[in-house]
Simulated assay, not measured.
Amino acid sequence: MAKKQLNVRVDATTAEMARERAEQQGISMNQYIERLVQHDMGEAGRNFVDTAAQFMKEHELAFLAEFGDGPTGDRQDVRR
């Protein structure tokens, strides 16, 4: 995959902490920042799925009452 250059500004303390952390992990600053973003996106995806699952768990009975349980459910006409 092609790489795209990003320029960001952070305070000196943050820059130094990032440099130190990348060094501790034996990776470049670029790799460290890339991993942070990928990790953050992974968490967002997991949070979305967890929240959707919790919503469905809480509202399952309402959905079943309204729409049945699929093609073989009680209600065939779900138009409104």
Rank of each mutant, 00 (worst) to 15 (best):
A62C: 03
G73L: 00
A53R: 15
T13F: 00
G45R: 09
R35K: 13
F63V: 11
M17F: 08
G42H: 07
V8N: 05
L61V: 08
M1L: 07
L64K: 15
E66H: 09
D11H: 01
M29V: 15
A12Q: 08
R19D: 05
F63R: 04
H39F: 10
R19T: 09
R80N: 13
K4W: 04
V37G: 00
E16V: 04
M29S: 03
N47M: 09
I33R: 02
E58V: 03
H59P: 07
L6C: 09
A15C: 03
Q24V: 05
L6I: 15
E43D: 12
Q38M: 12
A18W: 03
G70P: 02
D40A: 15
E16D: 11
Y32N: 03
M56G: 01
V49W: 02
H39Y: 10
V49T: 13
M1R: 11
A44D: 09
F67Q: 01
T72C: 03
Q25S: 02
G42M: 06
Y32Q: 06
D74W: 15
R21K: 09
G42W: 06
A62M: 10
V8R: 06
I27A: 02
Q31R: 14
E60I: 11
E58S: 05
I33Q: 02
R79T: 15
D40Y: 12
R9H: 06
F55G: 02
R80D: 12
L64G: 02
E58G: 03
R9W: 05
I33N: 02
K57P: 01
T14D: 05
V49S: 06
A2N: 14
A65Q: 15
R19Q: 04
M1G: 15
L64A: 10
K3Q: 14
Q24W: 05
Q54L: 13
Q24L: 08
N47F: 09
Q38L: 15
A52D: 09
E43V: 12
E43N: 11
L6N: 07
R19F: 04
M17H: 11
T51D: 12
H59G: 03
T51M: 11
P71K: 07
V10D: 00
A15L: 11
Y32R: 07
F48V: 14
T13H: 07
M56K: 00
M17G: 04
G45A: 10
Q25N: 10
F63P: 00
M41R: 11
L61H: 07
F67S: 00
G26Q: 08
N30I: 01
E23T: 14
A12L: 10
E16P: 02
R21H: 09
E20D: 10
L64W: 04
F55A: 08
A65T: 01
N7G: 10
D40L: 12
M29W: 06
N7F: 13
A15M: 12
G73Q: 02
F48M: 10
E43G: 04
A53N: 14
R46W: 09
T14F: 02
Q54K: 12
D50W: 01
G26V: 05
I27C: 06
L61Q: 14
A15P: 00
G70F: 00
A62L: 05
V37E: 00
A18G: 06
F55S: 00
M29P: 04
